[in-house]
Design a protein around this nucleic acid. Sequence first.
DNA 1: ATTATGCGTATCCGAAAGGTTACGCGTAAT
DNA 2: ATTACGCGTAACCTTTCGGATACGCATAAT
Lengths: 106, 106
Amino acid sequence: MHRQAAKSDVFRAIADPTRRAILEHLRSGPAPVKSLAAEFAQSRPAISKHLRILHDANIVSEQRSGRERIYRIEPATLREVDDWIGGYRSMWQDNLNRLKVYLEQK
Amino acid sequence: MHRQAAKSDVFRAIADPTRRAILEHLRSGPAPVKSLAAEFAQSRPAISKHLRILHDANIVSEQRSGRERIYRIEPATLREVDDWIGGYRSMWQDNLNRLKVYLEQK
DNA sequence: ATTATGCGTATCCGAAAGGTTACGCGTAAT
DNA sequence: ATTACGCGTAACCTTTCGGATACGCATAAT
């Protein structure tokens, strides 16, 4: 019934537009903090904080390399979002459902 | 780069577990505030506030009926989330992508 | 006409979010 | 050995969030 919101929730993590933008950048491949931060008008520590949240939510993984830290998307976790939205997908795809809505509105 | 931060964002709206639970209830059909509020340990005004946020984000629609207000899921808006996640779906489905990840990690 | 219901809104409050600057620690470069 | 660099974290501040309670307005019921 009630969902356990872990201390780091995926939905919360992707709620912020900056974090979604970070993910978009990572879609084309892993990247260190500096190169990510260069894409935004925010300070580097701010991006680091966003990365920490994404990391806590297991949406990205971290790999140290020298003095850099390479971040990479961890797609498996995003699947949770896909599963959730999947529960509603039929509502705009399923024709039977449209009939149902139609009848409800009468 | 990309701005769209409407005053009411879908991702922000679904970030809260209570609001996702409300949507889950509405999945089985439209409902008035009172019956929704009965399902939670929170006050009725709190649920009203959540509904307002969902409504502002166009995830639910409102229909007045006497002194009640009936809320109903508006699936089309959730499609935005589906489209977003769609951009990442290939990362856990596509075999070529797995190869890419494999090579990157070497 | 009066009373009871359903619901939104206003106000208030503590906690969390999201940003900044200052700093320190390892690693790389000179 | 020094200096420069990349990055995380701490401290701080302001804004937003998510609750609660108090209230008022329509509509329904009596």
